[in-house]
Structures are given as structure tokens and as C-alpha cells.
Amino acid sequence: MTLLDVRNLRVTFQTETGPVQAVRGVSFSLGRERLGIVGESGSGKTITGRAVLRLIRPPGRVEADAMVFDGQDLLHATDREMRALRGKRIGMVMQDPKYSLNPVMTVGRQLTEGLRLRDGLGRADAGAKARAALEAVQIRDPDRVMDAYPHELSGGMGQRVMIAMMLIPEPDLLIADEPTSALDVTVQAEVLSILDALVRDRGMGLIFISHDLRLVARFCDRVLVMYKGRIVEEIAARDLMAARHPYTQGLLNCLPRIGGPRTPLPGLDRSGAWASGGAP
């Protein structure tokens, strides 16, 4: 069953030097599976994720031949319909909890505001649900965390709070935009395994956006490789080593391997025709 279908997505930003296309004709579809989107900075992967949630604010412009989520047309949905989808059916975890959590509201208020405002739950019921969500992301002292402000939490803790917040309404699709890039290497694995287990248990769709090809390959079923606003290669994660596109091969080869031969790492060879950003 298709959860999300995107056809020929284009995102344009007006700048002083004229329009810049950040995403130019991206198509993909997604069931209840895990889709990775990989690419270097500026490849359009984050913008693609945000366009799905219609979070691109004017003067940015989103166009597509089709963008359908579970039978609902996202391109022509009203603001009210979009608000009902966001949070409730599609969630998003952002890169750095230092910035993505409101610094002057307690964690508890941020966790419960959706439940109280949207679902009309009382303070006690909402609090109980929020504590359960914190326990689900393996926070052992949910009461203390509920009363804490974001600056009182470590990065790993903050990102778990963020994941808990997005999973409370039990969405069908979660977009994780570099969810571990801002974290210490030591807690990255922990946060990832929590995210992985929750997504697997609840059978939701996942779009995992990252610049780390190997990481994505480990967590996803399928990988889209983006370059300059286009998808240059779509490949099953298990076939990654057989990637044909020179950009994908370049991304794979630019990482050192422990115990591997100590030869200089190859730079990305951008001499091919693909590098100019033309049609793949």
C-alpha cells in the first residue's frame, strides 16, 4: 500500500540573483517502509522532507505533478487540513534538539500541548501519556524530565524527548532529518536504535535523511541518492555496494575503514556529465 506518493517535486526560492531551484523534479513513493535520502549539503534532501509537510514558507514555492499522502492531496490541502495531518499523521524529528525544542517551555508542556489542545485531554491524562512516551524512548526518570527545561538536558536526552514528542500521536509517517548528526558519537547509536525499534514496532513509514550513506543503508530498506536537487540513483540498501552511479560510489569511497589500507582517500570525481546537475 502506498503511503506517500511524490511526482516531479520542484521547490524554488526567490533570491536577489533570481530564482534558485533547490529541488528539481524529485519523484518517489513510499509504503510502510524505511526510505533513506542521502546527499551532500545543499543537495535538496532536507527541503524535500519539509516540502512534504508543506513547511516551505513563502517566498519559497513548492510545485509538483502530484503529492499524495494516504489518498489526500497535499498540494491543494487547506491550511486547516495540513495542520490536522502534521503531528497527527506525519511527524518530523529535526537535527539539533538545542534548537528544535522551545527554550522557555518545560519539556512537559511541549509534550502535552498537542494532546491538550488538539485532543482535548485533561492535564492528568495528557501528563500520563507524555510520561509513557518518555519511558518508551528509555528515559528512566520521566517526572524529572517533564519538569526540566531543554537547556537542562543533554543532546541525546533532548533528541529522545523530540522523538517522544513526535511519536505521541502515533503518526503513520516519520521524517527524521539528520536526527543524530548533532549528537556525540557515543549516544548516536543509542538514539538510532531507539528510533529504529519504535518505527519497527509501530509499523510506520520512515524517511531517514542523512549525509551518511552507510548509516542510512543500515537502517533503511531503500536509498535515494540526491545531488543538486535531483535523485541520481535509487537502490535497495543491500545492493549498495553494487551502486553504479559515480556519485554514489564517490560517497561510499570517501570514508576510511578501520584496518583498511592506509592509502589517501579519493576525492569525489566530478568530471562526469552528471556533476553539472543535468538530467541523470
Binding site: L55, D79, R86, M92, Y99, S100, V104, R118
Partner: peptide, 24 residues
């Protein structure tokens, strides 16, 4: 970014502006 978070949570625009942004 926390404003984006509030929008992702589906908060109405008045709340995004007058509660989330205004408190800061």
C-alpha cells in the same frame, strides 16, 4: 527551528506566534 517544531506538531498559527515565539 523550535517554531518549525510547533508547526510540525500541528499547532495553529496564533499559538505558534503568540505562545511559542512571543514567550521567547
Amino acid at each position: 527551528e523550535y517554531i518549525t517544531t510547533a508547526r510540525v506538531k500541528g499547532m495553529p498559527e496564533w499559538r505558534v506566534v503568540w505562545v511559542h515565539a512571543m514567550k521567547n
